[in-house]
Amino acid sequence: MNLQEFLNANPIDDVTEDVVISPRFKDENGSPLKFTIKAMTEEEFEDIRKRSTQVGKKKVEFDSRKFNLHVAINNTINPDFKNADSIKKLGVSSPEEYVKRVLLAGELATLVQKITELSGFDVEMSELVEEAKN
């Protein structure tokens, strides 16, 4: 199989992965509960980046907290952070408030890291060089 055939057989519209983000999430048997995440497309990344950036008269401000929340909310399949019943059950009014209520700061950071890695970010150049050699 050449690269063109590989690309044709592997479009990016359904790249998902089950990941463990914290030892806190365990079922009744002590087994880890996994989050199902999906990769961001270039368009999704740009949309979230733009929504997290404010352009003022003299400076541009990037809100990394807002960026991380939107990455997690929009790219986590399970659990569904947009689930209206869950939002209502916890007495919050938005997916952003829900995430802040159910995830610790480090858990959110880990979740976002896993999503960005699945999306092709944070791949070390040395890993790519090593893989290319093989």
Rank of each mutant, 00 (worst) to 15 (best):
A105F: 07
P79K: 09
F25Q: 05
F25T: 03
D85S: 12
R24A: 00
P32T: 07
I12Q: 10
I21E: 06
E17G: 05
S22L: 04
A105Q: 12
F6T: 04
T110P: 01
E28P: 00
I77P: 05
G91Y: 11
L104E: 14
E117Q: 09
S86E: 15
L33Y: 02
I37A: 00
S31Q: 15
P11L: 04
P95R: 05
V19L: 04
I73T: 11
V129K: 15
I21W: 08
G120M: 13
A132P: 00
V20H: 00
K50I: 14
V99F: 02
V71L: 06
R65F: 07
N68K: 11
L3D: 00
T36D: 00
N68W: 02
V102G: 10
D27M: 03
F62W: 03
N8M: 04
L90D: 13
V102S: 12
V15K: 04
V123H: 12
P11A: 04
H70F: 15
M1Q: 08
E107Y: 04
V92G: 10
M1H: 10
R49W: 07
E46N: 05
E5D: 14
I21C: 13
N78Y: 07
S93V: 09
R49F: 11
E42C: 03
N10E: 02
V20S: 13
A9E: 08
A72P: 05
S86N: 09
A105C: 01
G106K: 09
N2H: 00
E130D: 12
L103E: 11
E28W: 06
L90Q: 04
Q54G: 03
V123T: 13
E5V: 07
N75F: 05
A132Q: 08
E42H: 08
F81S: 05
E17F: 07
T116A: 06
S126V: 15
K82A: 08
R49P: 02
G30F: 08
R101L: 06
V55H: 08
N78R: 14
I12T: 14
P23D: 15
L104G: 15
S94M: 09
E130L: 06
K66W: 12
R101K: 15
S119Y: 10
